[in-house]
Design a protein around this nucleic acid. Sequence first.
RNA 1: UGCCCGAUGGUGUAAUUGGCAACACGUCUGACUCUGGAUCAGAAAAGUCCAGGUUCGAACCCUGGUCGGGCAACCA
Length: 568
Amino acid sequence: MLTEEKNQENLETRSSVNFIEAIINEDLRLGKNNSRVHTRFPPEPNGYLHIGHAKSILLNYGIACKYNGKFNLRFDDTNPIKEEQEYVDSIMEDVRWLGADWEDRLFYASDYFDQLYDWAEKMILDGKAYVDDQSAEVIAEQRGVPTAPGIESPYRNRLPEENLDLFRRMKAGEFQNGERVLRAKIDMASPNMHMRDPVMYRILHAYHHRTGNQWCIYPMYDWAHGESDYLEGITHSICTLEFEVHRPLYDWFVDQIQETDYRPRQIEFARLNLSYTIMSKRKLLELVKEGYVNGWDDPRMPTISGLRRRGYTPEAIKVFAEKVGVAKRDNVIDVSLLEFSIRENLNKTAKRVMAVLNPVKLTITNYPQDLTEDLITENNPEDPDAGMRTIPFSKELFIERDDFMISPPKKYFRLSPGKEVRLKSAYIIKCNDYRLDERGEVVEIFCTYDPESKSGGAGSNRKVKGTLHWVTVAHAIDAEVRLFDRLFKVENPEDVAEGEDYKTNINPDSLKVLNQCKLEPIMANAIPGEKFQFQRIGYFTVDPDTTPDKLIFNRTVPLKDSWSKSAL
RNA sequence: UGCCCGAUGGUGUAAUUGGCAACACGUCUGACUCUGGAUCAGAAAAGUCCAGGUUCGAACCCUGGUCGGGCAACCA
């Protein structure tokens, strides 16, 4: 981004900062952390990123940019059982695609395993941590409940030397999974459950995607996260609301290692929720594993890879994230805001082309049999720089089946017997007749054209109510078009009757595949990821499944359609 | 009968930190249009969860409620 633009943006938004920026402004005013701002995005590589993560990425990266600070990408990989390299790769691709640049600061919590271990030994020596021999069940029981204090473990007052010996033997692999843990010695009576001697290390004989079999003890989130922030010099550690109750523990752990004035600060914001959408990683994984969708990048998924394949652009997602804002109250954003963002973006950038999704033949009876005209049409009326192109026109055409009705309702502006319409960038035609098959389906429409009405010509000023898109029979190329609808039938998929789950709300018609689609010939050159507006229909992108002999398009989002709406 | 958060049009976010509740999406009109798109013009829609208090003045401060969310993995 140009500095000039950035300054302009700062000026514009200065009067209205979100609560996180307000905190940062205050920290800066007080000169905290040498007036540095340093954020990070800390995903666990246990699944693909979704639009909610995009909000977080863009928030963290946006703040770093705005305050001339830095942004890190850090994988929170402290649980080898759930984490995989595939997820690391996909996450990096998605973060990069969104435009968040971590420069040379790619880190892993596992980078810090040695340091964390050393600090843990020090805490043991200081009497701040101890080894507990009890089972997970017993420990959970002793922790008590939110409304009543817990009780102390019988191992709580073990001598530091014994704790150190045991901890070293844990590390050395002398014990089985679950046999012992290292716990911080805080307060079993705290009203905050997280302060009741939380587990710092558990034994996990498991292969880690980066450290292999080097370790058999792994740090817990609370112990690893704040210390990782500390090691990276993070100033503002932004996370979601559910970690709010963890903050006292975050601070307690930082207290144990802090050596200078520098100190990272945790700030929590409300995660993004979208109507008609499910955002839980666990449930998205379930949709993938149980085959409700075709993989993490299925265009119906709210994953970043799904949105990308659907045809969304990073710009649109950025605009969306800005419009959504940042606050602490729970929210459900209407998907229409997301759709607005991509339409607004693609309206300015997508090339307009003719595509007939559900074709019916139309013959212009008074047009010369062998003639093909190259007509000129705009690539994008919203973008003067997009230029013009030619499109062939001849006697036999395809038009959209929906664009013809034998006996139309009152405000139908399209084609019907005796009526006139314009063919986009071509001529005005009049319907004289049509032919039905034995089932009563229209198989051919017969029209005459007005040679004087050619687009751009002298006599082209005549007004007709409707304009149709079309392609020629002789030149059209075939394509498969995948029409996506929302994955869930209801606004809140989690809202279900007793004994049912969100899967009962899955929309059975979320994917409709059309195979007889006819496109103007220039589309033979379309490449995967390229975006178009199919005129009068919607925005489409070329799916990566496309092969040289089979073009496949995904519908990103339909055009707004006030006609079908009013017809309801 | 614990602790921590939150509450502003249908949805989301603002309100110069105590000064006429604004913006966006959505909805509805109308204009324009060779995309029933876009664009343009306009409208409806909250009196700020409730009750008290402080103040000339409260969405904002205080008190007490109500409602919603979170917290009891060797998950993050």
